[in-house]
Amino acid sequence: MAAERPSDLALIWQQTRYQNKIFWRTPIAAFFTLVFPLMFLILFTAIFGNEEISGLGVTTAQFFAPGLAVFAAASATYTNLAIGTAISRDNGILKRVRGTPLPPWIYITGRVVSAVYIGALAVVIMMGVGVAFYGVNVYWRTIPAVIVTFLVGVACFAALGMLVAAIAPNGDATPAITNATLLPVAFISDIFIVTDDPPAWMEALGNFFPLKHFGDAFRAAFDPTLTGAQFHWDNLGYMALWGVVAVVLAARFFKWEPSKGGGRRQKKREKAGA
C-alpha cells in the first residue's frame, strides 16, 4: 500500500481549522477577545461623547477604535495563545502531539495562525463597528500600512504569548500572568486613557513595552490630520525586536510535558492516587 505523507500546508490548514473550532466552542475566550474590547468603545463614546478631542483634532471613536483594535489583537494572540497552550500542556495534549508524526512546528504554527485569524476578526469587528456607528474614517492610502502593522504586531504578541506559555508553571497561572501584564501596560500605552503630560517614568515605561508602538503605528493610519502611507518603521522594528527575543526565549524554555506538581490535571491524578 503506497503511503502518502500529507503536505505541510495541508497539515497547517487542518490544525488551524481545528484550533478555530476550539476557539468558537470556548465562549469565554470568544467573549473576552471579540466583545469585551468593543464594550470600551461603546463606553468611551457614551461617557466622553463622540466629539473632537481637544488638541488631538480627532473624534473619540476615531482615536480609541484603532487602539482598542490593537488591544483586541493583542488579547487574541498574547492572552489566548498563552492560556490555551498552557492548558493543553496541563491536559497532556502537547505530550500526545509529540508522540504523533505531526511536526511540532506545524502544531505551533496552526495555533498561531488561528490566533492571528481571530485577531484579524477582532480588528475588523472593532473598526467595522466604528465605521458603521461612530463615523470612523478609513483611508485607502494607509491600508497597506494597516495590514503590515497588524501582522508585525500580532507576530510580536504571539511570540510573547508562547513565551508566557513556556515559562508559566501551569494553565491556572497563565490568566493571572497575562492579565497582570497586558492590562497595566495598556493603561500606559494610550489604549484606555490619553494622558496630556504623563510623568517621565511612565512615559519611558510605556515606550519600553511593545503595545504602545503597536497602538501608535496603527492609530497613525487612522489619523485624519496626517497624510501619506503611514508606515512607521521605527515602531515596527521595535516590535520585531521584542518578537525575536521572545521567540528565542520561548524556544529555549518550551516544554511539551505537563509540569510535575502543578495544574488542575496533575492534582486530580494525585488525588486519585494513581
Partner: peptide, 16 residues
Amino acid sequence: ERIGIVLQESAVEPEL
C-alpha cells in the same frame, strides 16, 4: 508514523 501510543490518561481537546 509507525507507532501508536495509548496514554494512561485521556488527553484530547475536550471541545472537539
